[in-house]
């Protein structure tokens, strides 16, 4: 069986490594107030993955438009571009074994340079940028690599505590190869002092885990006189080799 890319790689069918729920933020983080009424109070039901969790949808490169990974231009009027610090965000999607994840769909969204989202529920007084929509997507290559171009988002205030400000961040949604790898997270920027004040960030118990969400300034990925580079790698759940798995009937 060959996959869509035409490679001879055998599809992997092993179960995913169990999630370390002491590394992720717990469901209830009261200082992030919205979590209080939206967090389950009963323990989740644990079980080893079945095919329903191991399998997952595939997205081909054919779905991508030319400007999908260029937020500076994908909403801009012809000949114009978004306002703000021009940056390139690049990195790899890996799994916990350190293996690149090819064909992973990444979707990103963010506020504009002033911290304003193009969303009718965002009433912040900083203005919209007529040339910035705030969404983009990419599919990783054979080595798990991806890149996109955007402007650095600004921090913004939010009604949590009386004076809470989100650090600059880009939201990431990631599909690996199985539905149980599905992940949404946020990327922060190296050196931003707001990171350590943020109740959403601080929902993550371990400082070392927070640091894995901070993108590094990468001067080697910078395009001189154009855009600075930031490197952000994402790690998805690893998976067991399927050599010793219980066989499905008929296999």
């Amino acid at each position: 069986m060959t996959d869509e890319s035409g490679s001879n790689r055998r599809p992997e069918t092993g179960a995913f490594f169990q999630r370390d729920r002491t590394w992720h933020p717990p469901v209830l983080t009261p200082n992030y107030k919205s979590s209080v009424l939206r967090s389950p109070q009963k323990a989740p039901l644990p079980f080893d993955n079945t095919l329903s969790e191991i399998a997952g949808p595939v997205f081909g490169h054919a779905m991508l438009g030319k400007l999908d990974a260029d937020l500076i231009h994908n909403f801009a009027r012809p000949g114009e571009s978004a306002l703000g610090e021009r940056i390139i965000v690049h990195g790899r999607v890996l799994d916990e074994r350190g293996v690149g994840v090819p064909g992973a769909l990444l979707e990103f969204w963010q506020a504009n340079a002033g911290g304003r989202y193009r969303h009718k529920k965002d009433g912040y007084l900083a203005p919209l940028d007529p040339n910035f929509g705030g969404c983009g997507r990419a599919i990783t290559g054979e080595d798990g690599g991806y890149a996109f171009r955007t402007v650095k988002p600004g921090p913004y205030p939010w009604p949590n505590g009386p004076n809470d400000w989100r650090p600059s961040h880009i939201h990431f949604s990631v599909f690996g190869h199985g539905f149980a790898q599905r992940l949404i997270t946020q990327m922060y920027f190296e050196g931003d002092p707001l990171i350590w004040h943020c109740p959403i960030v601080r929902g993550i118990p371990d400082k070392a885990a927070v640091e894995t969400l901070i993108a590094t300034l990468d001067m080697q990925a910078t395009i001189p006189f154009d855009a600075r580079g930031y490197k952000f790698d994402i790690v998805l759940r690893g998976r067991r080799a399927s050599l010793f798995e219980n066989r499905l009937e008929g296999n």
Binding site: R19, D20, G65, R118, K121, G133, H171, I184, I234
Partner: peptide, 30 residues
């Protein structure tokens, strides 16, 4: 020598911008 999974963060109130942009009025991108 295994890596740790990237920690999850909330999708936030504006998840539509990235995942269903047409639904929230961002047309012309997808």
């Amino acid at each position: 020598s295994r890596l740790k999974e990237s920690p999850s963060q909330t999708a936030g109130p504006y998840v539509h911008i990235g995942l269903t942009p047409n639904f929230c009025g961002i047309s012309g991108v997808y």
